[in-house]
Computed example of a mutant assay.
Amino acid sequence: MTTHGPVLPIWTCGGCGAPWPCRTRRNELKAEYEDAPVSLALYLGSCLVAATQDMAWAPAGLLHRRFLGWLP
């Protein structure tokens, strides 16, 4: 179990304080979903929707890059 989970509703990392998903959690997610990239995209898409509701003040493009922009 990772310590790099999101702290809601501000979506920071509980392990390092960086914006979630942090670099460590991204690497963990890549490993966890290595054989299921579509599932990873769906999971992060659902996180993006939740974060958009929690952080209505944040620009949509910024949140998109943060949650999905790092996927290959």
Rank of each mutant, 00 (worst) to 15 (best):
K30G: 03
R26L: 07
A51W: 00
S46T: 13
G15P: 08
A50N: 00
R23E: 15
Y33G: 01
D35C: 03
A56D: 13
K30C: 07
G17L: 08
E32Q: 13
A50Q: 14
R25E: 15
L48R: 04
G15I: 07
E28M: 05
E28H: 06
G15Y: 05
A50W: 09
S39P: 00
C47R: 12
G15V: 06
A18R: 15
C16G: 07
C22P: 08
L40H: 02
A41M: 05
E28L: 08
Y43W: 11
Y33V: 01
N27F: 09
E34R: 14
K30F: 14
G45Q: 05
S46A: 12
Y33H: 08
G45D: 03
A31R: 14
T52W: 03
C16D: 15
V49W: 04
A56E: 13
Y43A: 11
A18N: 14
L29M: 15
A50R: 13
C47P: 01
A18I: 05
A51T: 00
D35Y: 03
A56L: 05
C22V: 10
G17S: 11
R23D: 15
C47D: 08
N27A: 15
S46V: 00
R23G: 08
A50H: 09
G45M: 02
V38H: 04
T24R: 15
A51M: 04
P21F: 07
V49E: 10
A50F: 00
T52E: 11
V38E: 10
P37W: 02
R25L: 09
G15T: 08
G15E: 08
L29P: 04
L42W: 01
A51E: 10
L40F: 04
T24I: 15
Y43V: 08
C16K: 04
T52H: 05
G17F: 09
R26V: 12
T24H: 14
S39H: 05
A36N: 13
Q53L: 13
Y33L: 01
V38G: 00
A18C: 14
G17A: 08
L44G: 01
K30S: 10
E34D: 11
L29K: 03
C22Y: 10
A50D: 12
G17P: 11
L48W: 07
L44S: 02
L44D: 02
A36T: 12
G14D: 09
L29Q: 13
